[in-house]
Amino acid sequence: MTAFRTLSLAMFKGFVRDKATLFFTFLFPLMFLVIFGLVLSDGAADRTKVAVVGDGPIVSALRDSGALELEPHHDEDAAVRKVRDGDLPAAVIVRGQRLEVRFAQSDQVEAATVVGIVNGFVDKANLAATGQPPRYAFAAEKVEDAALKPIQYLTPGILSWGVAVSAVFGSALTLVSWRRKQVLRRIRLAPVSATSVLSSRLLVSAGVALVQGAIFVGIAALPLFGLTLSGQWWLAIPLLLLGTIAFFALGMLVGAFAKTEESASAAANIVVLPMAFLSGTFFPVDRAPAWLQAVSQAFPLRHMNDGMVDVLVRGKGVEALLVPASVLTGFTLVVAVLASRVFKWEE
């Protein structure tokens, strides 16, 4: 037991002292989360900003409605220059009773939005000025659809992917470097089982996965990204651990075949990258063509990802873990048996 503890500690130290590994485990997936989270963030949540010169009842109505974000300017030239430089899509200039909108030619969609909104407010003000009640009424209401906001599928996707990558690389590279540096032979000469040595490395991977989960979810939940977790999000923890074991086993298989660290990481990439793209890491699989969806069913990452989405953001219960857990367990068994068959102590 103390051997297991000391070994785990040794491997934990080896892990945290390796800057490159730390980067690829935590920062690299986080970069994807942040970049995709910002790029794909919901358009509605991000209001269009325009320059405003002057003030008046229509401008205050615009400001109160919150339909546009207003950037006040004193100088008309400065406001127009911002549009010309492409910093803002439009400038609204108040000249007494008259409202001028100068918009950028390049972004027609954005400009049309601004023109439409401003026009609507001018019409409303005109109607109010006549004192007549409006003849036609218009109402708009949001509908919660099944399609998730990007951050809601990005977070479970990138978390599954990040955990898979660090588990595969962690075990494959450890195994290969130990074999190359003769650590495996040295361990073979000590009265410990290979299993206890491997499980201490697995323990480190499991700990890492939990920390990844906490960090990624924590950051995605910041107001900037706006992840909202569903009630039974903690069901993600057993799924995270199962996934770690499955991908750790996969790494063992890669490490059993690979002779050098370089070939191990190349092989691990070849295994993990296509799987990541086809399993819904960066976009929901249900938007992919049907045949691709069928293919992706073969990947354990796809099932881990589905389970993650279900329990983290769709509010599903334990029953949602049934399929992912069975697939991951089956995968682990098959791959672990294969890996132990091809395992070599030395080159």
């Binding site: 040794a10 080896g14 390796d18 540096k181 650590v183 000469l189």
Partner: peptide, 13 residues
């Protein structure tokens, strides 16, 4: 007790 010809150590310790 064995000392191998090529030294074998755990990483980063």
């Amino acid at each position: 007790g064995v000392q191998l010809q090529a030294s074998s150590f755990f990483e980063k310790l």
